[in-house]
Structures are given as C-alpha cells and as structure tokens.
Write a protein that binds this DNA or RNA. Structure first.
Lengths: 156, 156
DNA sequence: ATTATAAGTGCAAATATATACATTTTCTGA
DNA sequence: TCAGAAAATGTATATATTTGCACTTATAAT
C-alpha cells in the first residue's frame, strides 16, 4: 500500500528471484498483492540502485548493488557443475571454477589420462589445461565433455 | 579493425569516461577511429559483462564488472613491491613474487577483470598470466601498471 | 482547517537496448 | 587450397526502460 512497503517488497523479490525485466518483476509484485506501473518501478529501482546486469551465463538479471557477481557463485555441486567458464588463449584452455574447486576438477581431468591433454595446472579457482601440439580446440572440448559426460560445458 | 582491439578500446573508454548510453559510447569509438553498430556494441558489452548501473546520484553510467569491490585490501605492503620479476615466454607472462605472495597478487589481477587478461594461475611464488590472443606484450604490461597504479596505497 | 509546497503516480511518448535474420568473414580439417 | 562450419556483423525490428506532463496525495506551516 505505501511506498515504503513496496520498496521493501521489491528488494526482497530482487534478492530471491532471477528477475530479467521490469515487467517480470511487476508480475511477481502483483502476485504478492502489490501493484504499480512499470514507470513507477523504473523510478523505484533507480532510487534503490538496483540495475540490470549479466548473470555470467548469457542472461540478464536485476541485482542489488554490490551483489554484481554473486550470481555466479550459486552452483557448486558435482565437478561437472563446478565448471563456470572456459576460455581459449595462446593455445591453452583456461577453465574457471568456483573458489576452491579448481583442484578437484583438475584431478578428475588428470585421472582420465587422455592423450590429448598434456597436463593441467590448478590454482584455487582456475585451471590451466595444456593440450598436446597440433590438436584443435574442438578436440579438447570434446575430450572434456567425454570426461564429464555432460552438456554443461559451455565455452565463452 | 579486429574484434579484440575493439573490445579493448571499449574497456578503456568505459573505464575512463562516464558513458550513459550505447549511442554515447558509439560516438567515442568513432572519434577513436573504430566504428561498429549499436547492435554489435550491445553484444560486446554483454560478453564483457559491462552493464549500465547508477552512478549514485541520479544518473546512469556504464561500468566495468565488480567496480565496487572494496575488499581488496589484504596485502602487506604494496602489490607493486610484491612483484620481484617478470618474464615473457611462449606468449605467456611469468610473474615472480616473494614466497607466499603469488596468490595475493594474482587475486588483485583477477579482480581488475581486464579484458586483455584471459586469466592467471598462481603458485606459491610464481604467477602465470595468460593474455588473450592477438595482444602485444606491451599492452599487457601497460594493463598491469594500470592495475597496480590505481590502488598502490593499500596498507591500512 | 487551509493553503502552499513537495512527493508520488499513471499515461503516453521518447529513448535505449536486445535480437531474428541474412550476409559476410574467419576458422578447420582434409 | 578448398569446401563446410562457425563466428562476427549489420539491418531492421522487437523489446525494454526512461521521462515529460498532468494529476493526485501527502506534508508542513500558519
């Protein structure tokens, strides 16, 4: 009913849900018995410093100030899920994981003893994978998906 | 010309200017002799995780990811002092530090989230820094000096 | 209580950003 | 080198967000 309570609801909804648009948030608010127009929402969000950012996996998401990146810390599960990103550079593959997971994932790769993979070096949240010479990036990625038997190995 | 150099320019412009819209940024890019369409820019920004937020007082502003991290004040002495040497090899940069300091320095580098730096792997007294493809060694070194020049007064 | 001032809101229109699709460019494997 | 696949890009358009304006509601001082 009052403006203050609306702001509080907005904060809660943004914190607890992956909201992708103001229309989206509007629906949730209505579901909670509190409604206003999208224009008002735009003004509310500005006042609270809530803005739309990227969730680290291609999508958009509204997030509270200071929580910009925490979205990507949501998924420490099996080793497969522990791969949060991969980047090719200089013929090497950098694999990102949540903090502390790098060595667990690297061990799994090492144990596969695949010819294509010359070796790995694990830090805390990053693994450097050194492929053997003259192999395509794709071959390595295919190799990894075999090891993890999963489709969640997305590049970029 | 190349995509990589465009991304680098974008990063630089966003870091050094108060950019309020993609059209805005587009102008600056053109002024720097590098042009593309707004659509491409939208995709570039998404890939780099650069999104529009609030500058704290009314206005909008594009900002680099994690630009509100204040918790990088963990290092004894300045990070600059903690770098005792650097060597280029195979397109990679090896950074030496006093024993035990590698990870602290690497964290600082990671947090800067510079596009030019694909990632780092830290051991105990050595950091392996992997640059993105098609960048000069000089670009990387300049990048590093920027990172360590901004916050050198860490000790509190 | 009454008037003056400020704050909040909806509506419609203006801005701004993202995306589908077609095309061009770059990359890969033979 | 060449054909096929994948990535990058522009164009046009769809989607999303912001804002000017008029109106309503709250606030404060007499």
């Amino acid at each position: 009913m009052t403006r203050a309570s609306r702001l509080i609801l907005i904060e809660k909804l943004v914190r607890e849900n992956a909201i992708t648009s103001q229309e989206d948030l509007l629906m949730l608010m209505e579901g909670a018995g509190m409604k206003c127009t999208q224009a008002t929402l735009s003004r509310d969000l500005r006042q609270m410093g809530i803005s739309r950012g990227f969730d680290g996996r291609g999508g958009y998401r509204y997030m509270l100030p200071g929580k910009e990146d925490k979205a990507s810390e949501l998924l420490p599960g099996t080793e497969t899920e522990a791969i949060t990103g991969m980047t090719w550079a200089k013929g090497l593959l950098l694999i990102n994981t949540p903090p502390g997971y790098a060595s667990a994932v690297a061990i799994k790769i090492d144990r596969a003893r695949r010819y294509e993979i010359a070796g790995t070096v694990a830090g805390d949240d990053t693994i450097l994978l050194i492929p053997r010479d003259n192999l395509s990036n794709e071959a390595i990625e295919e190799c990894l998906s075999t090891i993890f038997q999963s489709n969640t190995l997305t590049k970029k």
